[in-house]
């Protein structure tokens, strides 16, 4: 159990590391949020799972943390992205289409 837990912890930490690398490498705020959200969600879930295997008596509370994470993580990144778009944060030149900007300009 301890060994599987340790492997999961290591895997989670690697995903968190890749997420941070994504934050540095991605060209604009939207892509950075994307890299951040996905990696932290799976990375943290793996860390929680690994901890639960090593310390089984904590399982229930770790499960609670996991549920909260699954619901709050996508919401917060969505709100961040929306706020960034509203305040017209610069997009990467690679961005090909922006339907949201087109629709918002039409409305105003």
């Amino acid at each position: 159990m301890d060994i599987i837990g340790a492997i999961l912890l290591l895997g989670g930490a690697s995903f968190l590391f890749l997420g941070s690398l994504g934050l540095i490498r991605m060209p604009d705020v939207y892509n950075r949020i994307q890299a951040g959200t996905k990696a932290t969600t799976l990375g943290t879930l793996l860390v929680l799972l690994g901890t639960a295997l090593i310390q089984p008596q904590w399982s229930l509370k770790l499960l609670l943390i996991g549920v909260f994470l699954l619901f709050t993580n996508p919401l917060s990144s969505q709100v961040l992205a929306n706020a960034a778009h509203r305040s017209k944060v610069r997009k990467s030149e690679l961005t090909s289409i922006d339907d949201l900007e087109a629709d918002r300009e039409q409305q105003s």
Binding site: G22, L42, S96, D99
Partner: peptide, 24 residues
Amino acid sequence: LLRSNLSMAAIVLSPPLPISPAIV
């Protein structure tokens, strides 16, 4: 979720950063 992490990891780790973002 697992697949999305692996594909994101592949993008982040590949030197030319193969992305073509868009909002649809």
